[in-house]
């Protein structure tokens, strides 16, 4: 497998009052083509900032990001993004949301239709082409979000807590659907979450982050074959291991600053 995304010593600082707030510090990571990578961390650990920089929506203070050996310097069609707030264009129907990127690429309406038909069916929204977002449930909205990102045919799909706004039932359903879509499209997925269960269910690898400043604490390979059974012993053990890792992180927040210095 080839490396599709490489991040080298990435740091992001925000000006805060007179001082500078370090959001993420010295992150280096390589992602394989076709990999399902989950980034897991407590809130405020900078995982969304990291994803926004990969997407090109935010600029790093220092460090380099390369997609297919090409430096990232802004948003690009090689990376698609799915948002927690769905971010659908409310005045557009499902079809026209999915075709947004295709319109910008000046495809003919026939080509657009062929591609949008394919992805709308892939995410299971056939029959809802002409519905407006307000007519859809949360889970259906996010299906549109996924179809819209995929229609642009990106190499990497970036997902920022995409199921965070959904209820538990829908969330589990969407996780299954996402794995099915991932297996059909063979996309690389970078998935942000703060749910240990979600990360364990989905990921090939889990990156656990620390908070303030956000750094990589540990990376876990998940050897369990899919479909994963949440009730199985190995799943429970894995979840316990990662939860402990994460909890150590969360409960040690007041002393993180010194903790990080020790580690460095």
């Amino acid at each position: 497998m080839a490396v599709i995304l490489s991040i080298q010593s990435l740091t992001k600082e925000f000006p805060k009052d007179e001082k500078r707030l370090v959001a993420i510090e010295n992150i280096s990571l390589e992602v394989q083509d076709g990999e399902f990578l989950c980034i897991l961390g407590p809130s405020g650990c900078g995982k969304t900032t990291l994803l926004r920089i990969i997407a090109g929506l935010s600029k790093q203070t220092s460090g380099v990001i390369e997609v297919n050996k090409k430096k990232v310097s802004g948003p690009g069609s090689d990376r698609g993004m799915v948002f927690q707030e769905f971010a659908l264009f409310p005045w557009r129907t499902v079809r026209r949301n999915v075709e947004f990127g295709l319109e910008l690429r000046k495809l003919t309406s026939k080509e657009r239709r062929r591609i949008s038909d394919f992805y709308i069916e892939l995410v299971g929204l056939k029959g809802f082409e002409n519905s407006y977002p307000y007519e859809l449930s949360g889970g259906m909205k996010q299906r549109v979000g996924i179809a819209r990102a995929l229609a642009n045919e990106p190499a990497i799909l970036l997902m920022d807590e995409p199921f965070g706004a959904l209820d538990a039932q829908t969330r589990n359903q969407m996780q299954k659907e996402l794995l099915r879509i991932w297996e059909t499209t063979k996309k690389t997925i970078i998935f942000i979450t703060h749910s240990v269960d979600e990360a364990c269910y989905l990921a090939d690898r889990i990156v656990v982050m620390t908070a303030r400043p956000g750094t990589i604490k540990d990376i876990f390979d998940i050897p369990i074959s899919r479909p994963r059974d949440r009730a199985s012993i190995e799943f429970a053990q894995l979840r316990k291991k990662i939860l402990e890792e994460l909890e150590r992180e969360v409960f040690s927040v007041p002393s993180t600053i010194t903790g990080v210095e020790e580690k460095i």
Partner: peptide
């Protein structure tokens, strides 16, 4: 986030305005 979504789908400043 609508602006962000449009940017990731390839919108430049002009299309951001019109679309």
């Amino acid at each position: 986030h609508l602006i962000d979504a449009a940017k990731t789908l390839g919108a430049g400043r002009a299309t951001l305005f019109t679309k």
